[in-house]
Structures are given as structure tokens and as C-alpha cells.
Computed example of a mutant assay.
Amino acid sequence: MWQEQGNLTNAFGDLTFGSSWQDTPDCSENSLVSQLQTTLDLQQQLDIFSMSAGRALTLNGLTLKTALGEFQATGSKAGEYQHKTSLSLDQQVLAELSYESQYPFTPLVQQQLLILESEWLFSLRNALVVSRLQQMALKDPLTTLGNRRFFDDSFAKAVQLAKRHQSPFALLLLDLDNFKQVNDIEGHSIGDDVLLKVADCMRETLRVTDSLFRFGGDEFAVLLTDTDAEHAERVAERLLSAIKSESFLVKLGVGCSIGLARLSHEQQPRDLFHLADEALYQAKSSGKGKVRHSQVSRANLTDKLTHPMRVAS
């Protein structure tokens, strides 16, 4: 489960604490240990820890780097002095902490921080385990893209946020062309390789901030925000071109069709999804290997909401 942390060990080194602190942890009501035990959320634990660390030295910022991602304490900013340390438990590196302050990290301050860090280790490990399990539950096991459950949640939140801030947002739906034939003729192992290549093309073509998903089968989705949403057709064409030019996919005759829909103020997530779905149907029915931007008006959605798209691969 924690194979990723082996990389952290190589990158960050190791830090082993003595056993004395483990034997008698302070679990009084107001202790750091008891406060950390109230949550398994990594961001909340970091904010709790930063408040205690701030009593040892006034901090400008605090960053936690883990195999699951990077987190910053609320309000963090750069400081003149930096201090880094690795957090390890049972000879396993859990994370790296990076402190920022306007004041130097004297040996006494470092010792005080070390004591506080030792009080965080068990709660941090538990939070990392839970976060890892949550991530696994939301990822497609083959491609490691988000799964349908993750898409439903992310899509609804992204639409709500875009409408609140009146920022551009677009949805791309992808369906592979000729995948079924390749899967049937070449076998599922080659079919899996195709899906992995497509996922790699998506990661390499799109921004880190764009959200990528695999629904299952050969269906994918992309959530585009801000600048990329304004130029969604250009992004979709770039993605289509990347998949068309991938040598492994070219050899097997696999391409993709893409349906695109942009969010308007009156639309709900369900409306936007069906507009993109209709655009994908248009791309498939017009000869495949194309990008289509839905021109369906909201008034014409009534029938489409109750009739799911049917396309041939």
C-alpha cells in the first residue's frame, strides 16, 4: 500500500525518534496529541500542528509533503529562514515538513519542533492511511484516473464553483473509436494497454489543474476550468491530435471522438452533461475522429434527458 513512500525515503532521508516519547504520550484534553486525534483530515491536522509549532517560533508558513500530495498550513507564505525535517515512524518516512519564518531556527527551536513532530506521528500515519484508502476508492484501478464516483462529485462541485465566481467552465466527453474491435481481436491485455496509452496522452496534453476521469470501458471525461475553458475547442483538438498521433494507437487503428459543452449561467450539471453527451453523439455519427461542440438549446433537452446516448465504438 505504501510503496510510494519508498521514494520519499530516498528523497528526504530518514528520521528516527527514540522510544521514550512513545511510551508515555500526553493525551490530556488540551495536549497536541489529543487535538490531532480529533480529525483524520490531513489539512486540519497540519493547521492544528502549525498552531502548536508557532509557540516555539513565530512561523510564516508550513508545508507538508507526502506521497499523496502537498499541503500548506492556512495563510502560509515565504519567510527569510527555512527549516526542513522528515517525519518517520517505524523506519518508514511519512512526510517532509518545511518551515518558513522571519527568525532563525536555533538548535533549541529545532529541538522543540522535534518534540512536537514526534507527538504528531501516530495521528499523521492514521490520516495518511485513511486518505490513501479514500483515493483508491475514487480512482480507476487501471489508469489511476478518477472514476465515475469521483467524477460525479467533482463535476457537481466544479459547476457550482464556476457559477458562483462567474468563471468559464467546460466539459469534454471522450469515447474511443474502434476500441471494441481491438479488444475483441487482440485481447483484453492489449485493450488495457490502449486505455493506458490514452490516459497518458491525456495527462501529457492537459494541465495539472484539469481533472481527468475514466467512467469505465472506453469512456473518459475532462473538466476544464478558467482559461482552458475559454478555449475548450482548441484544447479538445489538441487532445484529439495527441491521441491520433500516438504510434501504438495508430498501429491498432484506435482514435477517439470528443463532445464538448460550455457552461452557461442557467444550466445545472445534468444539463451540461447531456449537452456534451449529445455533442459526442454528433462526433461519432459524423464519421468519428472529430470534436463537436453541442449547439443544443436547453429547451430541446427534455427528450434527451430521458434517452441516453447510443453510439458504436
Rank of each mutant, 00 (worst) to 15 (best):
Q91T: 10
Y81F: 15
L36H: 08
Q92P: 02
L116C: 06
T85A: 07
S28D: 04
E96H: 06
Q110R: 15
A53G: 03
S28P: 03
V33A: 12
V109G: 07
L87P: 07
T38N: 10
V109W: 08
T106M: 01
S31N: 08
Q72K: 13
T63H: 08
P104Q: 01
L59H: 10
A56L: 11
K84P: 02
E70N: 11
E29I: 13
L97K: 01
G75M: 01
L97M: 14
L87R: 10
Q111W: 06
L42P: 09
A73H: 11
L40Q: 14
L46Q: 03
T85E: 11
G54Y: 01
N30R: 12
T74D: 08
L68P: 10
L36M: 15
S86L: 02
I115K: 01
S50D: 07
G79R: 00
D26Q: 03
G79E: 02
L114P: 01
T66I: 08
G54F: 07
S28I: 04
Q92T: 11
Q111D: 11
R55D: 06
G79M: 01
T63V: 14
M51I: 13
K77Q: 13
D41R: 08
T66P: 07
Q45N: 09
S34V: 03
G54H: 09
L94F: 07
S34P: 02
A67L: 01
D41P: 03
N30H: 15
C27S: 08
D26V: 07
E117D: 12
L87C: 13
S101D: 06
G54T: 13
H83Q: 02
Q111I: 04
K65A: 11
Q82S: 12
Q82D: 09
Y81D: 03
E100L: 06
G75A: 02
K77W: 11
L64Y: 01
P25G: 09
T38I: 09
T24D: 13
V93T: 15
T66K: 00
Q35K: 15
T63F: 00
A53N: 09
Y81R: 04
Q44R: 14
S101Q: 05
Q37K: 12
P25K: 00
S101K: 00
S34C: 08
Q35W: 06
T38R: 09
S101N: 05
H83A: 00
S34R: 14
A53D: 02
